[in-house]
Structures are given as C-alpha cells and as structure tokens.
Nucleic acid binder design. Structure first.
Lengths: 335, 335
DNA sequence: GATTAGCACTCAGCAAGCCAGAGTGCCAGG
DNA sequence: CCTGGCACTCTGGCTTGCTGAGTGCTAATC
C-alpha cells in the first residue's frame, strides 16, 4: 500500500512542520515516526508528493514544508479530533452565565481565542422576524429624536431621526401613543402595512415615515452584518510564524469587517460542518498567509464562528474547538 | 545662551530620530540644522545632555537617541502644533453625520487613527444622571427576562435577570405596569427610594429587587468603563519601530481594557489639556515601549480620547490631532 | 516492482576576519 | 566659550570557509 504510506508521509510532514515550524527532512521522519521504512523510501515518496504539488522545499536541499494544497489534502482526510475534556467543560461554564446576546457573543469570541490560541471571530447571529413590543421616542436637541424599538424577541434597536421642522410637545406625545397603538404586537408585512397607513394619515407629523421605517427595519429578520474578534495578539506572539509585515494587513482586514464578512458568506455557502480556507484559498491578498476555520451556528446555520491563524496551524485542534463552540452557541441562541 | 542651544539640540535629536528612526550624530546635526555652531560644540552639548539622562547612545560611538526622559523634556517644552487645515475639515465632515452615540464614538476612533497613524482609543463618554422614561420586561425562555430601560437622555440599557420560580403572566404584566408607574420620570435617590419601596411591597414578585437594581444602575451617571480602539495595524506596519514581540503585549492590553482604563484614569487625574505618558511612564511593562497621548472631553472632561504608538512618535502632530478630536467630541456629546 | 544502502552534491547558517564609515572624546588654540 | 584636528571605537556589510542536514540518483537486494 504505497499510496497509503504516501498519505502518512504527508500527514507526518504537516504535523512535524506545524510543531517545529522548520522544514522536515526524510531522515528525521524515518527516525521519529514509526513508518517502518527507511529514509530513502521516504525520499522517493517525497519526490512524488512534490510532483503532485503537495509539499515544497524552501530551498534546494532543505527539508520539505507543506504547500497550501498539501494542507488542504491533509485537512480533507482528517477525522474529527476529540476535544479535550477540560475544554469541553470550559465551554459550558464560560458561556452559561452570559447575560444577553452581546454578552454571549463577547464571551464566545474570547473563549474561542483562548482555546485555539488564534484570532477568533464571531459573526452576530441571524435574527428571527419579530413583533413590536414597544416604541419609544426621545427628543434630542431641537431637531432630532431617538427612536428606540423593543421587539418581542428582546432585541433593542435605536436610531435617531431628523424631525425637520419644529414639532409641538402635544404632537410629539400623540405620535408616540399612536405609533405604539398601531404597531404593538405586529410584525412583518402586517406591521409595514399598518405603519404606512399611519404615516400617511392626514394631519400627521412630517417625520412619521422615517419613524415607520426604523420600526420596520428593527423587527426585520436576517443576519446583522457584524463580526467581533478577539485574540489579535496571537498573530504577533512569538512563533506564530507570521512576519511583522504580514500581520498589519490581517489586522486591517479584521477591523474593516467587509472583507471578512464576504469571506464568511462564501464559507457559509459551502454548507459543510466545519469549513476551512487555507492560504490563497481565501482569495484575499491580505489573508494569503493565513487560514480560517469556520463553522455555522444558530437558526438555519446562518451565522458563523471561526478561528483565523497562520496556514501553519493545528488544524485538528482548531477544527474541534470551532465546532464545539459553534454547537454550544447554537444551543444558546436558538432558545 | 548655551542653555537654550542645548534645548535646541535635544529638539533636533528628537525630530531627527523620529523622522529617520536612526541614531543621529553631531555632524549630521551641524550640517542639516541651522544651529550656527560646529559639530564639536554640538558634541559637547550632547555630552551634557547625556549626563542629564536625556539622550543615550545605543552603543559606543554611535549617534544619540532620546531617552524617555528626553522625550518628556521635549514634550514639556512643546508649543501646540497647528492642525493642518485638511485635517480640521476632515474632523467636521467625518463626525457631523453620526447617528447616535455609538456611531460618534466609532467614527471618532477611526478618524483619529487615520489622522495620527497610530492606534486610537476612545473611552465612552460619561453620562449625566438621568430619569426613567420607560421600562420594558421581555420574557426569555421560562426562567429569564430581559429588562430594557430607556432613560430621558436617550440611553438604552438592557440586562437579563433570573426569574427564579415560575411567574404567571398576570403577575408579570402587573409588574411591568407597576414598575413603570413607580419609576417614570424619576431619577437618582428618589428613584432608588421609590423602587425599593415597590420591591418590598407585600405579595411582590420575587425578582422585583433585581429589576429595581437594573433600573437604578441604568440611570446612574458616571463613566461607562469601556474603551474602543481602531488602527491596531499601525502598530505592525513597517517602520513603526516596534518589534513583533513587543506588539503582542500591547494588543493584549488593548483587548483587556482594564490596564488601559486604569492608565486613562490616571491621566485624566492630571487635568492637563493634553496629557502624555512616555514609555516607562505608563508604569506598565506591556506599554513600556509605547507612548500614549490623551485628552479629556465631554461633561466635566471626564472621559478620554487618545492615541497610542511607539515612543518614537510624532508628538506635536499627534497632540494636535488628539486635542482637536477631543474638542470636537466635547461639542457633539454635550448637547 | 518496491525497498534499501551508499555516494556525490547542494546549500543555509554560522563563525571569523576584514574594511569602511560614522561618530565620539579630548586637547590645544583662537 | 567655541572650533579644528586627531586618535580611537564600534557597527554593519562583505567575504571566506566550514559544517551538517538534506537531497537525488544508481545499483544492489528482497
């Protein structure tokens, strides 16, 4: 079964390189790994693996390191790694006493970054369409008001609207009463219809339409387009294998969100349990030296958690941790 | 005025080192700077400056670089630098169409990081004690409820409380009605007294005390202990002058908040217009290679904006930008 | 046909040695 | 108090030579 041994060699190279961050040679492999063959045989295998583009030499007569394609092959063949019991417990205790959605997300991202020793990212969970519970309008200065919408699934959204011309206190109070009477308990198309009607009523305040828009938007479902991250220092920590000038673009991508969001969308579309992008597979220059491991969670598995680190990362461990956190998040978020 | 020239020499050394990131020698100084004296004289001055601990040689017979103390002396003698007109305009346009408090803070921190090319930090503004406008309770699962408090100054706070034993829908609705009736329009000590009374009423739901606490906390004034940052990639960008292993601890400090908050508190206490901590003056190991420039803003100047970067930073420029953003923020937040 | 042993070859990394240039400290004279 | 001059020091860059790890190939062996 020479084919099978070649896989084993690739496997060993990946693990060796991940562990030491140094090119691994045939001799060392023959000695430390119980492959049962001599270094010469391994050299032959290596030559073939190199032809297939799975490994490469950083320079002539150095050991081999895996290419992106090599990692890919390794990952595809990977059986899920069991999560250490200690980690499993940590997830439970760490997340169980979260106080609201923000808190859950915040804790998750911290936890995941600690478990994986990578940068963790969590996309805000998607939201069910909900009904209006209460609308508050609060004056801010002469020309603006803040619209606060509390919806039935305990979300709170706020946004300011311009009042345009001066509005009397009576009109203002009347608008608050009316919009609550109109919207209370409604959601979706019926809410929209009712509010449109209300806004068009004769003698209505001129900013009623703007308020209606905010209320409708606040109860709409869908994914909030936002990710939070934690553990950025893991990128810079010694032995991350990333040079100082590679990490700046990565930090930019994390802060800018948009690149990251697009990538997460793509990965979500793949629909695997845990999905992995390796190096250039991310299709973003800034991330071409990093890999990202992500798993979906929540209603319809529509949001993502992930870990991002150097291509030379511990894939089995990271995938295990990401999967576990995703599962836990699903439980918490779906109730 | 030999004393005065020595100041000028220090000044020149700081500027030279900031610009080139290389030790600056007496000859180069005599040639490029119009100091009107020869390099030998400058050498004598340098010897004295070195004795005073203001400059140092990285190794024998290299040029000099400023010490923390040298930067300090430089900064203390600094006249405020005028802010480029383009920047001034940018602040106006960039911040003017912010939509709510979060948005203001978010935009400010981005803007400041761009202006200074450093990591910008903004502490959330302090809040006036406010009155209750509306309290909402939303059931979440069987055992928890979310308390949402909208206060008169348009703040919205939310927190979940445990219900303990099962509560009937009637009791729940009654509690909502009562708490609103009790708390509406009240703030401070009177609010606290009223709610305490309400929570202790006979036949009251067991979680009334918890709700009361949340409501009181939500309207209390004071500074929200939270900072946001942006521009972390500036730390890693080429030429920042920070090594890869110095930046990891800095990123940690930024994410952990607590170190940063303590430092900002200390700086706020100094009460200067713009306050600067240089290198070891931060008293934190993690930040010993960085400086932080901060200015207070908002009511009672109780919150801070700042920029954090390598000790070798452009102090005049950074101080100008920080001051300008702080002023603008004050305007926006105080209305 | 697959595996192994042996051998010649390549090349990074390190140490040593050398040189040039920048910078210094000090001294004597203006 | 300033300046010119001089001897001295040290880094950084360059070359050179060596060692050891690792390779590819071929011929012999299972």
């Amino acid at each position: 079964m020479t084919e099978e041994r070649r896989r084993a060699v690739l496997h060993a190279i990946v693990e060796g390189y991940v562990a030491t961050h140094e090119p691994v040679g045939s001799k060392a492999l023959a000695e430390t790994r119980a492959l049962g063959v001599s270094s010469a045989t391994i050299r032959n295998d290596m030559a073939i693996l190199e032809e297939e583009g799975l490994i490469a030499q950083p320079y002539t007569s150095a050991g081999r390191i895996p290419t992106d394609k090599g990692y890919r092959s390794f990952v595809d063949q990977l059986a899920a790694a069991a999560l250490p019991e200690a980690h499993r417990r940590a997830i439970g205790t760490f997340l169980s006493d979260a106080v609201d959605l923000n808190d859950v997300v915040e804790r998750s991202v911290r936890l995941l970054s600690q478990l994986t020793r990578q940068v963790a990212v969590v996309q805000y969970p998607s939201l069910r369409e909900s009904a209006v519970r209460r609308v508050e309008l609060v004056r801010m200065g002469a020309e603006h008001a803040l619209v606060v919408v509390v919806s039935s699934d305990a979300r709170v959204e706020q946004q300011s609207v311009a009042l345009g011309e001066a509005t009397s206190d009576e009109d203002f109070e009347r608008a608050v009463r009316e919009v609550n009477a109109t919207a209370h308990g409604l959601g979706g198309a019926r809410l929209e219809a009712a509010l449109t009607l209300w806004a068009q009523a004769p003698d209505q305040v001129p900013w009623a339409g703007a308020v209606a828009d905010v209320v409708v938007a606040a109860t709409r479902g869908g994914t909030v387009e936002r990710v939070v991250f934690a553990g950025a220092s893991n990128l810079a920590r010694a032995g991350s294998g990333l040079e100082a000038d590679t990490i700046a673009p990565v930090l930019d991508a994390l802060e800018e969100q948009v690149v990251l969001l697009r990538l997460l969308h793509e990965m979500a579309a793949e629909g695997d349990d845990v999905s992995v992008r390796i190096g250039a597979e991310t299709h973003y220059e800034a991330l071409s030296r990093t890999s990202i491991v992500a798993a979906a969670y929540g209603r319809d598995a529509s949001s993502l958690v992930g870990a991002l680190g150097p291509t030379r990362m511990d894939y089995p461990g990271t995938m295990g941790a990401v999967r576990a956190v995703a599962r836990y998040l699903s439980k918490v978020v779906e109730l």
